[in-house]
């Protein structure tokens, strides 16, 4: 029995979503990925609002967060998550196309746990996503009680 941990992927670009899921699928991690299409939806999910109102308690094991998002951008999501007592323990990985130093600095200032630039090369990209998934969803020990667990045999 493996305990799978839920991943929240915040990404507006469907192509990137598909590629990311592809990367995660290698270790059968994909079925535990929840996709939010923008920052507002991500926050709704984290706060169990709107269409996520009926969600059981518990936080995702990791948030993979794009920075450039419609409505509420990635920085805002990061800022809210890291300043909320209930959410601040969730590891947040910024997964972005931007290699700009100011984005990097701003993300770390806001308390991001890792910053990963999406490589253009597909293999590099899937490798990166895969490793992220393995590390944050399988290897990393999240804070107690913050993860909703689903058991599969």
């Amino acid at each position: 029995m493996i305990e799978l941990k839920r991943i929240l992927l915040v990404e507006d670009n469907p192509n990137d979503v598909e590629l990311t899921l592809e990367g995660l699928s290698e270790y059968n991690l994909a079925n535990e990925v929840v996709v939010a299409r923008d920052g507002a939806e991500a926050l709704d999910y984290l706060y169990h609002r709107e269409q996520f109102a009926d969600l059981p308690d518990g936080n995702p094991a990791v948030i993979l967060l794009d920075l450039k998002l419609p409505r509420v951008d990635g920085f805002e999501v990061l800022r809210i998550v890291k300043s909320d007592e209930k959410l601040k323990l969730i590891p947040v990985v910024v997964l972005t196309s931007s290699r700009e130093e100011r984005d990097l600095v701003e993300s770390y200032k806001l308390g991001v746990n890792a910053y990963v630039v999406k490589p253009v090369d597909f293999h590099e990209f899937t490798d990166a996503v895969k490793e992220l998934g393995i590390f944050w969803a399988l290897i990393n020990e999240p804070p107690l009680g913050s993860v909703s667990k689903k058991k599969i045999s």
Binding site: N13, N15, D16, L19, S97, E100, H123
Partner: peptide
Amino acid sequence: SYSVSHDLRAPLRHISGFVEL
């Protein structure tokens, strides 16, 4: 250049990614 950095690379990644797929 900031938006180039962010937006221009995404389609490339997609081209590369989906070709590989």
